[in-house]
Write a protein that binds this DNA or RNA. Structure first.
Length: 379
DNA sequence: CCGATTTGACCGCC
DNA sequence: GGCGGTCAAATCGG
């Protein structure tokens, strides 16, 4: 375990060095790429060790502090969650993510400085990636939630659809449901639903009785390709339109980055809780503190001390991470899914060719347009 | 042209 | 019968 920690510390150190060297390296993409590779490599190694540790001595690594809560029928069996490991992993993810944030911001800034003359009007907005603040998720709070309440699961079965026209699946095949609360981005278009590491395709929207806002239904974009059964429902809270309740249903069988699928369809292995939670962990990420609106490039919130204190502080923050595909998109110069980067970092092979590629490509590839065509206005 | 979104209709469940 | 979830044709948009 100590080895892992020191690996991570090393990674952070490298990242910091990279950070401080960025001004010098800005116009040396090769060196930059190399440095990034080093950082990634260290983190990757640490992560692999983590998994080895996990695999050998834990059967369940529920991130105990994570802000999701499963349906009672499946997971309210409270084993002692291995919080250290889980939070360490979270921390690892977030630190990588934030490191890459900095790199990306710097690169972008430099790029703009070089390429564009009117860069003064551009605002690199990492804060805009998600929330405007600490939207902490309560783990209970039985407000009316998607699905009516938090305990709606009942195995009622009375035969399959007898219709000859459409065949519908039974309402509930005991599929997993996970509810999380996420905050809408407070800048730009706050009406777009929160994003996560997966790409979703909207297949329906419905007015829900007693709710001011309609509920949107999404399914995994790769549903056809991978028979991925994952779905999600997104609904804004009545009393806090900046908050969304997102219910994830079903497990992703398309284990990959949210962008183009690049792996062959995985074998139909049963997905364990661990896997699932891990995926969920990608959805959730820690936001750096947002003091004023400046780019914290020269600040040291990346410092290990800070990150550790951040994680020790408990209270995970859930954000509506992801690119707010603002239609107006003027004030936001840089938007990209942070979680995507973490995802890419951990999933991409360590090809030394161009490790920064995903940073620049995952931006627009990630998501087309969210249904934002002037409807769904706030009353 | 193709994939995503919209939206009214359909259908299962309570 | 009402509600919520899904389907699928129409539409949009890159």
């Amino acid at each position: 375990m100590e080895e892992i920690v020191s690996l991570i510390l090393l990674g952070c150190k490298l990242a910091r060095e990279l950070e401080s060297n960025l001004p010098n390296l800005a116009d040396q993409p090769n060196l930059l790429s190399k440095s990034c590779d080093e950082v990634i490599k260290v983190f990757r190694t640490a992560k692999e060790r983590l998994y080895m540790t996990r695999g050998s001595n834990s059967t369940s690594a529920h991130p105990g502090h994570m802000t999701l809560f499963h349906e009672p029928q499946e997971s309210l069996v409270h084993e002692q969650p291995r919080i250290e490991l889980a939070s360490l992993e979270q921390w690892l993810r977030s630190s990588c993510t934030q490191a890459m944030d900095i790199i990306q911001m710097q690169l972008q800034a430099d790029h703009q400085r070089i390429d564009m003359q009117d860069s003064s009007s551009k605002v690199i907005n990492v804060a805009g990636l998600g929330t405007g603040g600490s939207d902490r998720v309560e783990s209970s709070a039985p407000s009316r939630s998607i699905g009516g309440e938090l305990h709606p699961l009942h195995a009622s079965d009375s035969g399959i659809a007898s219709s000859s026209q459409r065949q519908r699946r039974r309402k509930d095949d005991g599929e997993r449901r996970t509810v999380i609360k996420v905050a809408a981005p407070r800048i730009g278009n706050t009406e777009i639903p929160p994003e996560d590491v997966f790409t979703w395709r909207k297949y329906g929207q419905k007015e829900i009785l007693g709710s001011r806002f309609p509920r949107s239904y999404y399914r995994c974009t790769h549903q056809k390709l991978y028979q991925c059964p994952a779905k999600k429902q997104v609904q804004r809270f009545d009393d806090d339109p900046y908050m969304y309740e997102v219910m994830y249903r079903g497990d992703h069988t398309c284990h990959m980055s949210s962008t183009a699928p690049s792996l062959p369809p995985p074998p139909p292995v049963d997905i364990t809780d661990n896997d699932h939670d891990e995926i969920m962990a990608q959805i959730i990420n820690v936001q750096p503190p947002q003091e004023s609106s400046s780019v914290p490039s020269s600040r040291s919130w990346l410092s290990t001390e800070y990150l550790i204190s951040l994680r020790a502080g408990g209270g995970m923050v859930v954000s509506g991470a992801g690119p707010s595909t603002t239609r107006s998109g003027k004030e936001v110069a840089l938007e990209y899914p942070v979680t995507d980067m973490a995802d890419a970092m951990f999933n991409s092979g360590s090809s030394s060719s161009n490790s920064m590629d995903f940073l620049f490509h995952s931006n627009e590839l990630n998501k087309g347009q969210q249904g934002d065509k002037g409807k769904n206005t706030v009353d």
